[in-house]
Nucleic acid binder design. Structure first.
Lengths: 225, 225
DNA sequence: AGTTGTCCGAATGTCAACATTCGGACAACA
DNA sequence: TGTTGTCCGAATGTTGACATTCGGACAACT
């Protein structure tokens, strides 16, 4: 058993099932558009359909999968329109998170951001584990939202977080060099602005950071408008 | 039976249960803090616990109720901190919705907004049905989000919509005159800006509209900071 | 009196069987 | 050949019973 509390996992089987399926989607086991059948998953995970069902509902709330009345659940596709929607909303959320965090962030939050930037730098220096780099990117923005301390804002962020993660994985697949060349500098600047920057500059840079990611991803997509 | 499609309600019992419970909360039958017991609701609504459970999960996604592991579900409270969180997020969402709708809105959307303003005016002229006025207010902002046409943004809006509705009902309880005096003019101006206004002015007014509501509500609350 | 340990009722978490619905395959028809 | 109607398999929606967990009441101990 792991070193952490063995029975600390006090959440239900539904949450666990959701985590497992989410990981399987990120790993590519379930590509975009793939159907997620309840009986199949229940059998494979060793839990009942009810728990799988509740887990899938959670993933639907995260926007990672889509479902309809008696029409099953499938992994979302990555279309230009989806990307536009998600990144437009993300820009608004990140802007609010950054400006809120500028006032509310504690020293611990700020040093955690620095630590993540350092990890990114190290990651780039040695190998080129793209998924790990993307995970650090996501963790960086998680930390900003944590620093902002607005529960509703965090919920809204979590509602697009998984989609964003999926999109970013596609992005580094298509244009890893471009991503690799900018990721550290952009996040280092954001960290600096969060520590002692002008609030209007911060708001603008947070939006630009998202815009940069959006254009980079759209460039590698068909029918990019 | 209604004039619309009688069996068009093709959604599951879970959705129906959610609607019923939501209405009961708005009507005051379940005041803030009240426990929502699954067996009790299942009996009263004539559906199984599973459906009630799924319906409550939906209300939890809307932020109207809160639940924990083996700890039941209760209606949210209305504290100053909750109000600050919800209105801060709403300002960011409404700003994005308004600026997006400024470009994407169709003539139908715009005339629907005018119609709602007219209904508000009529409502004030005759009686003083506060809940109905609040419902029109909510419908107005629903329409803006519909005009924006960003599915993810709409989801984020729906995640705070019910809380907002509950807060607004409390607001008119505490300061109906103040609300009544401003609601029509503010919405009329927003409608005009959406039709042919400068986009920066629109963004600013949308944020100010939310701020006005927030301060009005906080004034009638204890421990208002 | 204050504290600790045990027990019990109530409520939620989980499960497997049953009912309902969807979408395509197939055949009859124009 | 294109269209319409019917049927059927597969998958989801729903249900009630069973298992687990929580929180307080009560009693024994210090």
């Amino acid at each position: 058993m792991s070193s952490a509390l063995p029975k600390a996992a006090r959440r239900g089987l539904a949450d666990e099932a959701a985590d497992l399926v989410r990981a399987a989607i990120f790993s590519g086991h379930f590509p975009p558009g793939a159907p997620l059948r309840e009986v199949e998953l229940a059998e494979h995970l060793g839990v009942s359909r009810g728990s799988v069902r509740e887990g899938l509902a959670r993933l639907e709330r995260e926007g990672l999968v889509r479902g309809g009345w008696h029409r099953g659940t499938t992994v979302i596709e990555v279309t230009a329109e989806d990307v536009q929607e998600v990144y437009a909303l993300r820009a608004a959320l990140d802007r609010l998170a950054a400006t809120t965090a500028r006032r509310a962030a504690t020293a611990e939050h700020l040093s955690a951001l620095d630590r993540l930037v350092a990890e990114m730098t190290a990651e780039i220096a040695e190998g080129s584990d793209a998924p790990r780099l993307v995970a650090l990117d996501m963790a960086f923005h998680d930390q900003i939202h944590a620093a902002a301390g607005n529960g509703r804002l965090t919920s809204a962020w979590e509602a697009i977080r998984s989609q964003l993660h999926l999109f970013q994985l596609h992005r580094v697949d298509a244009a890893y060099d471009h991503y690799r060349a900018r990721v550290v500098d952009e996040h280092r600047e954001l960290a600096a602005l969060l520590r002692s920057g002008d609030i209007r500059t911060l708001a603008r840079r947070a939006e630009e950071h998202v815009d940069s990611a959006r254009r980079s991803l759209l460039a590698g997509l068909p029918t990019a408008q």
